[in-house]
């Protein structure tokens, strides 16, 4: 393919020069189901994540020439050309899919039959978009987001060829903290768990809204990354984040028997008493489920309403009184005479 005149060379992964067309922001259409499909690829953001080492064809494997017909859906579990360095085997997301299949989010029940509303259960793309690195620069004990030349220089003194140092540095430092900002994780869960129709179908409480009312949720909304999001409490301890189990499973992290261990993990409330697990996280203020919280809330609301609206009315009337100062239905008999004079029956000065 002739590339003469291009201001920048096409990226290495782009053998077929896919960006010749896919760099255009308007490359889009409305599909047969009325969905907006945008075929634009932001090269810079594609290069900011682990998939940058893949060629387009590694995932979009049915495309072998351009121009091409509508492509098939990508299967995340297919093997790609990347070799996983520790085991020296070709990389695939199959093991993640296997884990997901044993979790509460599997669309099949234990016998392998589809669960009711099985179409609601998530696949890879329901929670994941193109992953992006969130590298950290560590230099002289100072940790900050991003990647500085000084921080990576220690890798690059030996690993000079290609992007090896960058790839590993960004991959590892991204994995040393949350690879997604906690609020984004919560929004991922909220896509289904906050949807009222979904909750009705599966008989679930609005756990996202109730979580957001906890100190955990509020600190995250204010930008903390040290506070637990959904995954920190709900993933089976020591397993990868795709293994979330239902509360009634004996190994579930939120099973009553395991709850206090989950709160008191050495990374969180290490010194807390076992009774910390009695704290109710997802409080809906439902009268039957959470009577204590419900009646306390009612008490405070009533108190606030009475006190505040009493004084509000008083001040409003006082202001109104100032607008018509001289008017009154009955004039006071004493007038504005000092009351001691009336009491002492002294003549007016």
């Amino acid at each position: 393919m002739a590339l003469t005149g291009f201001p920048e060379p096409a990226p290495a992964g782009d053998e077929l020069n896919c960006v010749l067309c896919h760099k255009h922001r308007g490359l889009s259409r409305i599909d047969e189901n009325g969905k907006f499909r945008l075929f634009y690829l932001n090269q810079e953001l594609f290069d900011a994540g682990p998939h940058r080492r893949n060629k387009c064809k590694d995932c979009h494997s049915d495309i072998d020439r351009i121009p091409h017909k509508p492509a098939k859906k990508v299967t995340c579990t297919q093997q790609c050309h990347i070799v996983e360095p520790s085991g020296n085997v070709k990389f695939s997301h199959q093991s993640i899919a296997d884990t997901l299949a044993t979790s509460v989010h599997s669309s099949l029940d234990a016998e392998g039959n589809p669960k009711p509303h099985h179409e609601d259960y998530p696949g890879c793309k329901d929670c994941h978009d193109q992953p992006l690195y969130r590298p950290l620069s560590v230099y002289k004990g100072e940790v900050k987001p991003g990647i500085t030349a000084r921080a990576i220089s220690r890798c690059k003194s030996c690993h000079t060829s290609g992007d090896f140092a960058e790839d590993f540095y960004e991959h590892v430092t991204s994995r040393l903290h949350k690879t997604r900002f906690p609020m984004e994780t919560i929004e991922v869960c909220a896509k289904c768990h906050q949807d009222p129709d979904f909750r009705e179908r599966h008989e679930l409480d609005d756990v996202v809204t109730t979580y957001k009312q906890t100190f955990h949720g509020k600190l995250i909304a204010l930008g903390s990354e040290r506070t637990p999001d959904c995954l920190d409490c709900h993933v089976v301890p020591g397993e990868n984040t795709h293994l979330i189990e239902a509360q009634d499973q004996p190994t579930s992290s939120v099973n009553k028997a395991n709850l206090s261990a989950t709160c008191r993990t050495s990374d969180c409330h290490e010194k807390a008493g076992a009774m910390l697990a009695g704290f109710q996280t997802h409080v809906t203020y439902d009268r039957d489920k959470y009577p204590l919280q419900f009646y306390m809330l009612m008490f405070f609301k009533a108190l606030m309403a009475v006190v505040l609206y009493f004084f509000l009315t008083l001040i409003f009337l006082e202001l109104l009184r100032r607008l018509f100062p001289r008017f009154a239905f009955f004039k006071d008999k004493e007038g504005n005479t000092p009351h001691h004079r009336i009491r002492n029956k002294k003549p007016e000065a």
């Binding site: 969905k35 907006f36 945008l38 634009y40 690829l41 932001n42 953001l45 594609f46 900011a48 990508v74 793309k125 994941h128 978009d129 193109q130 992006l132 690195y133 969130r134 590298p135 950290l136 987001p145 991003g146 990647i147 997604r180 900002f181 609020m183 984004e184």
Partner: peptide
């Protein structure tokens, strides 16, 4: 999407994988 060193704001298009 908050990468710490960069904030990406983009329209949400359901089912879209690439940013």
């Amino acid at each position: 999407t908050d990468l710490g060193y960069k904030l990406i704001e983009q329209p949400y298009i359901e089912g879209r994988f690439h940013h």
